[in-house]
Amino acid sequence: MKDETSVLVNIIAFLILFVIGIYIYIVAIDTGAGIKITDNITPTMRVADKYLNKNVLDDNSTYQWGGTAEDTAANIVTSVVVDYRLFDTTLEVIVLFITILGFGFVIPKDKRKIIKPTTILNRWAPILMLLMLMIGGYTFINGHLSPGGGFPAGAIISTAILTGVLTGRRTISQKSLKIIEAITGISIFSIGIISYFLTGSFFQNFILNDKIGDLFSGGLIPIFYGLIAFKVAAELSNIYFEFYEE
């Protein structure tokens, strides 16, 4: 499909955006109080100082490798996403749910024929589906020790179901996907309410005395990441089924 437009409109748009771009660059570098971002600002001048030293609740606590602390995940980004700022993550789960709800409402449902897949794809599909499931499972189980976590794990598990859809193998029905999504969503909030009754604040970790660096460390963090991974995977798989109705 061609799209053509006149040369004058292109040049005017380009010049306007160039001028605005220079202005935004000059404003974006300045952080106020005369300090620019391109000077070296160490984390002790930022909010992240408390998350790196793990002394949010108690101002003087320190920790060792192999000892216990107030939050025992070795991956600091995971501890920020799932322990210190878990409220933002649950709101993100709600926004994703509403977006997929709107998607399922707008897309037109028509019957299409699925083209027969080629021989190579037909033979390789079961091996690829198993491989994707294993890689996705490894990523969210080791979310607190190495980079990864629940969000890319959900995307990787959903590509396993995508490979099944492309070759005509219906391994899971659409109704059970909706049940999985609903159960995991309710479990996240019910764990939060249980921890309110056990410790006194919402979403507080109630599994204590872990050690930094173990596989079974991190309190409730692997449980939350597992629930988030399956919820994201179920929602993305619903998208593929809607695009490929038969």
Binding site: N75, T78, P147, G148, F151, P152, A155, I156
Partner: peptide, 8 residues
């Protein structure tokens, strides 16, 4: 972390 998520 962000690189793995953006690639997937």
């Amino acid at each position: 972390d962000v690189a793995i998520t953006e690639a997937a």
